[in-house]
Amino acid sequence: MVRAAGIDIGTNSFRLLIADLGPGKFVPSCKELNTVRLGEGLGADHLLQPGAIERGIAALAQFAGMIDHYQPRYIRACGTHALRLAANRDLFLARAHSALGFAVEVVDGAEEAALSLRGALFTGKGALEPPLLLVDVGGGSTEMIWLAEHGAPPMIRSLPIGAVNLTEAFAEIAPESLALAAMAGHVRARLKEGLTDLALPAAGCRVVGSGGTATSLGALDLGLAVYDENLVQNHVLGQGRLENIFAVLTALSSEQRLALPGLGEGRGRIIVAGAVIYRELLQLLACDEIVVSDGGLLEGILLSSLPSAAGL
């Protein structure tokens, strides 16, 4: 067994996973999530805000203590959309290096998507078999990965739409019904572009959702008071159920959404925008369900920290 760690520095959340791995073995010893909201206020000037930077460094300092305690042999930390976009990312990266004791890599959209696919297939335990379209809705971007069969090169598109930046972009439109209609139109146009590039088969495909939006929708559908990754993994969320959840969410205020059980800290602020992406996607594909994957980018980052000789 070998111990490894992965850190996902996302637009909304920072996550840490430490696990022991061996042939047929994956035993997590530490899993942490901190809702940093690094991309909050990342507007037209593309500047990380001082408060967001401080929250991020505090979260990484906390992770550093856990890494020191568990002593993983291999570690990789990856930043995604917010750090790809930020004009002042070098300031954050320098402070992150000091907090962690090692460098953070900023991965492009294609690598982020490939890592999400690797993590989802690994944690799916054989239940997630191609052909499939993996869709990871993050805070600042949505990665779509089409895998036709095992061994085939995946086709990847990274779209600049996510639960955080959509929420902020349409926040000033009132009433909310008009904001949601405008958001849906924007999302539909972006998704159409991405799906055209992927050239999916005419017969349709199975959609697998990973990331915080998908798992949160799965938890809501299951009625979980406390999130349970074992119940969420491979849960099938039907389109009709998604429509029902969306109707409930949009009937609530932002404060009421924040109080919903089963959602992570702060997820209620952005869950509607994330749900819009999946609603529009299913409608465009004429697909009637999403298979939810609890595993994805974070697990992919951890696995990618291992040398190829590890065979995992």
Rank of each mutant, 00 (worst) to 15 (best):
Y70S: 01
P131D: 08
A44Q: 14
G296P: 02
I301F: 02
E176F: 01
D136I: 08
G43H: 12
R257D: 09
Q283D: 15
I161Y: 01
A275E: 00
G151M: 05
A171P: 11
T35D: 12
P154N: 12
A273H: 01
D228V: 05
D45V: 08
H186C: 14
P160E: 00
G10N: 08
I145V: 15
F246Y: 15
A259M: 12
A87Q: 11
E243D: 15
K125T: 06
I75M: 12
S13M: 08
A152H: 13
L17T: 02
L42E: 10
A59H: 13
N230D: 14
V27Q: 14
T196E: 14
M66D: 11
A61I: 03
A113F: 02
A87M: 03
G39I: 12
E193M: 11
L93S: 13
L200C: 04
A58S: 14
M183L: 05
S177F: 01
E243R: 14
F122Y: 03
V291Y: 04
E255I: 06
V106F: 02
E112A: 05
G51P: 11
V137N: 02
E265N: 14
A120W: 06
L252E: 10
G264I: 13
L33M: 15
V187R: 10
L298R: 10
L133P: 12
G79W: 02
D68A: 15
L237G: 09
S253W: 06
S141I: 07
G22P: 01
A86V: 07
S216W: 04
L298D: 01
R279G: 09
E32F: 00
N12Q: 06
S305I: 04
L83Q: 02
A58P: 00
G43Q: 13
A225H: 12
G194K: 09
T123F: 01
A189S: 15
P261W: 05
L21H: 03
D197E: 15
A259K: 13
S98L: 12
V232A: 08
E54W: 00
L258P: 03
P130G: 10
N165H: 10
G119V: 07
G119F: 09
G41C: 09
D8E: 06
S116G: 07
I67Q: 01
I290H: 06
G264K: 14
E54G: 03
F14R: 04
T196Q: 13
E149L: 00
L195P: 06
V107K: 09
A182G: 01
I245R: 07
L195I: 11
A113C: 00
M144L: 15
L48F: 02
G22L: 01
S254Q: 14
